[in-house]
Design a protein around this nucleic acid. Structure first.
Lengths: 238, 238
DNA sequence: GAGTGGTCTAGACCACGGT
DNA sequence: CCGTGGTCTAGACCACTCC
């Protein structure tokens, strides 16, 4: 089996949807199951996925429709890549003080990454800049067993996610993010060229792959005067 | 039928999960279907919901486990209503200083709500409390033409979203949210019973209905020591 | 091999929206 | 009334993990 049936249906429907307009109606579930020759359950698995990702919406008793936001604003939300966001804003993205070392993670980190006992992780520390101004101070933990022989030079040549994908075949499918507001400590404020006590966004991100296995845990501190955290939220309980 | 079977399973599992620790193992799907006397599909529907909401994670071949991302802190992000989040955390949700008036909105607000010229909106100001402690100070704008004859008494009897749905047939399908960290001003800090300068989350939310029409714009200020803004991000470009 | 979650089938009835 | 999505059953086999 190459790809699960419902994944194939998803891919095909994605193509069909991209050729439709916002609020266009899709065929009913019963028509789709005949078109694809699969059971209703399989169709519903596919539609569920598309609905969660915001490509379609379903109305009880009416039908399934193409969602508009996805077509109008494909860039809003989703997994943000710092470099791409900055470039889109017409600024220059750079990274400073990059360091990579092998460490035994704290209990909190180990739990997030589903690690047992004393498994080691890479610890990647970065300061991200836009037009040479510090914006984000981040610490990333990557399990050693998933990313053997990770080199700093790899990361300097390409973005983190593309390295994980191309060198280690790890696809980041979804990320859980927790966002808090914090007052910067004296030391933190220096990294970000801010005043001590300034309000800052603290973002905890856990990224998982297609097998539901955590592949990355990152704690970021972001200057909030320049950086906005943007997300889309879907209502699952209509 | 009172509640769908899988919703009942969800409620019961939520209770069981709340008594477990992070990374504790749940019974297997086959054990659960025997415990609840339902089919496997129903159990999986329930587990899917819990997984999406971040309460559990599942590992192929290993089992289902309590997620560590799920803390006791209520989530202020997303379409979840404040009252429900607070209740879920076992606390008492109340609202203070509610005021409702008809205003001509600023240009910024009018733009967000796709309003023309001098269209009026209702302006709803609320302070939300959990266990009598102020948590969120919010200002909500609702277009008058969509919600004629909105009464403060309606909102005091029920949640905002349920009023919009039941009285005006407006379904909130999706919301865009921008999150910033700010230092509280002197006046703001008094509303939230905090110190001036304390870091706080400022959340701009625009909610749209199934026709892609903006139905609500809200600016919230939330105490970040008690609340976490939580979101899921999907990678659309596999 | 035993146990887990992942995928899939072929039915059924319910609840909702519109004719 | 019909067509829609929502819920539900009772099976089956596959893919993965651990022993």
């Amino acid at each position: 089996m190459q790809k699960p049936l419902y994944r194939q249906v998803i891919s095909d429907l994605e193509m069909r949807i991209s050729k439709l307009k916002a609020n266009d109606k899709l065929p009913s579930e019963r028509k789709l199951l005949m078109q694809y020759g699969v059971s209703r359950n399989t169709i519903r698995l596919a539609l569920q996925d598309l609905e969660q990702r915001g490509l379609i919406y379903r109305l009880h008793g009416k039908g399934t429709f193409v969602s508009s936001m996805y077509l109008d604003q494909p860039n809003i939300g989703g997994m943000y890549s710092f470099s791409e966001e900055i470039k889109r804003a017409g600024q220059k993205a750079t990274t400073k003080n990059q360091s990579l070392e092998l460490v035994t993670p704290s209990e909190q980190i180990a739990k997030q990454l589903n690690l047992v006992s004393d498994e080691q992780t890479y610890k990647l520390v970065r300061i991200r800049l836009a037009n040479d101004e510090p914006q984000i101070f981040s610490t990333t933990y990557l399990p050693k067993k998933l990313f053997p022989d990770l080199k700093l030079s790899d990361l300097q040549a390409d973005t983190l996610y593309s390295v994980l994908k191309s060198k280690y075949s790890q696809l980041s499918v979804m990320a859980f993010e927790d966002v808090q507001a914090v007052n910067l400590s004296a030391t933190e404020s220096k990294f970000l060229a801010e005043k001590a006590g300034a309000a800052s966004l603290k973002i905890y991100r856990k990224t998982i792959n297609d097998k539901n296995v955590p592949i990355e845990f990152t704690i970021s501190l972001a200057r909030s005067d320049k950086f906005i955290y943007r997300s889309k939220q879907y209502n699952h309980f209509l």
